[in-house]
Design a protein around this nucleic acid. Structure first.
Length: 212
DNA sequence: CATGGGATTGACT
DNA sequence: GTCAATCCCATGC
């Protein structure tokens, strides 16, 4: 794999790089489905060589998309209830993906509230199951191309502040839980709980924009 | 074909 | 802090 690809998530070579590089660079980008969009503030990387990754077991019906070409959505059902959205990365034949774990709502907040129920804005997308519900992403989006489909990833806007990136251990897993493959914007109040140790002592703001 | 285990969330004690 | 909801898929008989 090469790490010299594009930093523009609207280009295919952005995704054809190390899963950890892509996971870090996705923080600050914007995930969109129709008129609803949010700023990515938390990701985790998963790779076939490590047992927490679904691709660890090899090529099956479930993991087919993970081993497919980069730049596509991998969506699966978690705990029978929630849809979790991932970005397939690295070359075809390599099973690796970035789990999108939290967003700051930036567009279509009313639509997100309609889907999620009225609650604090910072809690609309502060978890991997919450953000798919808020954006209306379901299992039918599994395999959807991110460069030519309903779901798109856009680069950070120039008027947004830069990301304050911190890494921590992945959460919600029992295998390979010690790997520091969770990446968060420490300045965001929308990161899911528990916050990484590096965020203790922070007082994150809600908005990803610079103060007016 | 039956079974068991989740990359979670929200409600409740 | 505890716990149930709920379903897809991998595994084993």
């Amino acid at each position: 794999m090469s790490d010299r690809g594009s930093r523009d998530p609207r280009r295919l070579d952005f995704y054809d790089r190390s899963v950890h590089v892509v996971a870090r660079e996705l923080v600050g980008c914007r995930l969109r489905h129709g008129s609803a969009a949010g700023r990515i503030v938390e990701t985790e990387s998963y790779h076939e060589e490590e047992p927490a990754c679904h691709a660890y077991i090899g090529l099956t019906a479930r993991t087919q998309v993970l081993f497919g070409p980069p730049g596509h959505a991998y969506v699966y059902r978690s705990y029978g209830i929630h849809a979790l959205f991932n970005v397939v990365v690295e070359g075809e034949g390599v099973g690796a993906a970035v789990l999108i774990r939290a967003l700051e709502p930036v567009e279509g907040v009313e639509l997100m509230e309609a889907r999620r129920g009225r609650r604090a804005r910072k809690d609309l997308c502060s978890g991997p199951g919450k953000l798919t519900q808020a954006l209306g992403i379901g299992l039918e989006s599994n395999g959807s191309p991110l460069l030519a489909g309903a779901i798109a990833i856009e680069p950070p806007r120039r008027d947004e502040r830069s990301v304050e990136l911190v890494a921590g251990r992945r959460i919600g897993i029992t295998k390979a839980a010690e790997l520091p493959w969770r990446f968060c914007d420490a300045a965001s109040a929308c990161v899911s709980r528990p916050w990484p140790a590096a965020m203790q002592g922070h007082s994150p703001a809600l908005s990803g924009h610079r103060a007016a």
